[in-house]
């Protein structure tokens, strides 16, 4: 018996690839939209987190924001 027979014997199996495609594209498009709508300042704040002084407060930006 051919393996493709399993495929046809699963009910509505053709829906799986469709679900796959839709989900993947939704996530991908969502991520792209989100990324390109971010402002520079926000991104630069994030990317500098590891470079901040770990031990003492030296980041005035942080200060302003928490107020």
């Amino acid at each position: 018996m051919k393996f493709s027979n399993y495929l046809s014997s699963i009910e509505n199996v053709s829906i799986y690839p469709v679900i796959t495609l839709i989900l993947f594209f939704a996530v991908f498009v969502g991520a792209v939209i989100w990324i390109f709508t971010r402002d520079k300042e926000y991104i630069s704040k994030l990317e500098n987190i590891p470079l901040e002084n770990d031990n003492f407060i030296n980041n005035t930006e942080n200060e302003n924001e928490s107020n």
Partner: peptide
């Protein structure tokens, strides 16, 4: 800082998915 923070987010979601 990392070359592109935006790229890090994009490849994070695509990678785990």
């Amino acid at each position: 800082p990392i070359f592109s923070y935006k790229l890090s987010i994009l490849h994070f979601w695509t990678l785990i998915f």
